[in-house]
């Protein structure tokens, strides 16, 4: 198989030599996952197998090499995460409606009544959010989102202020618009590239950080049910 079709010179020869085996690995893994899903009758098992199909997709994308692959893997990961989260929620709510009984929102084998959960959350969350803001972009958003999530999980023990989620979801949407505007400025006014860069970086930062708002909205709906 000739991989010499249109390979830019920036691609290292090792990546080119690994292209065909990586593509075939991705295809094999994806096929195994899809075949297993086809033979599966149970919904939950099929959901777990979609994870395998996602891995096949990631290997295929990684085979491209260079920064392009990195830029394509990150949204792929986020989409896979959101998909599994959404489908698992649908499965759970459907079973609960069928059986007519509810389970705990976050089932834990032990009581999370630890010292660190009552004294540290504010401090740790602030450190993580400040460090995330310093990093900015996708990674910073993930770090800050981890801080927010930790705060929410530890505060859940005392009851979540469920009205604030509406606001967080709104801010998340506005940040997404910032990112879009930044992207547009790149093309329309290339001389303002620094402004565009910062708009995009901090838009994505706020957007990813407030992905936690999604979990919060689910939580609010669970609390409204009572």
């Amino acid at each position: 198989m000739s991989a010499s079709v249109l390979v830019p010179t920036v691609v290292s020869p090792i990546v080119v030599s690994l292209y065909v085996p990586a593509i075939f690995t991705g295809l094999i893994v994806g096929l195994i996952g899809l075949m297993a899903i086809a033979y599966q009758k149970d919904d939950l098992n099929a959901l777990i197998l979609t994870d395998i199909v996602g891995m096949g997709m990631l290997i295929l994308v990684a085979a491209v090499g260079t920064d392009l692959a990195e830029a394509l893997i990150l949204p792929g990961l986020v989409v896979e995460l959101a998909e599994i989260l959404a489908i698992s929620e649908i499965l759970m709510s459907r079973e609960m409606r069928k059986k007519g009984e509810t389970a705990e929102l976050i089932p834990l084998p032990t009581s999370m009544d630890m010292e660190v959960m009552t004294t540290a959350p504010t401090f740790l969350a602030i450190i993580l959010i400040v460090y995330g803001a310093f990093l900015s972009g996708f990674t910073g958003g993930a770090v800050a989102g981890g801080g927010i999530l930790f705060y929410i999980i530890s505060r859940r023990m005392r009851g979540v202020p469920s009205d604030t989620w509406e606001g967080i979801a709104g801010v998340s949407g506005i940040a997404w618009c910032l990112w879009l505007v930044g992207f547009l400025v790149f093309f329309v006014f290339p001389q303002y590239w620094l402004l565009a860069l910062f708009l995009a970086a901090f838009g994505v930062f706020i957007k990813v950080a407030f992905k936690a708002g999604l979990i919060g909205v689910i939580g609010r709906e669970e609390f409204n049910k009572k």
Partner: peptide
């Protein structure tokens, strides 16, 4: 960056799946 994010995402996916299994 993809590797670091992937490790984090795998952990979160495992947590989501375990939560779904236990709740179901």
């Amino acid at each position: 960056i993809a590797l670091v994010t992937y490790i984090a995402a795998t952990t979160i996916i495992t947590m989501i799946l375990l939560r779904a299994i236990v709740r179901l």
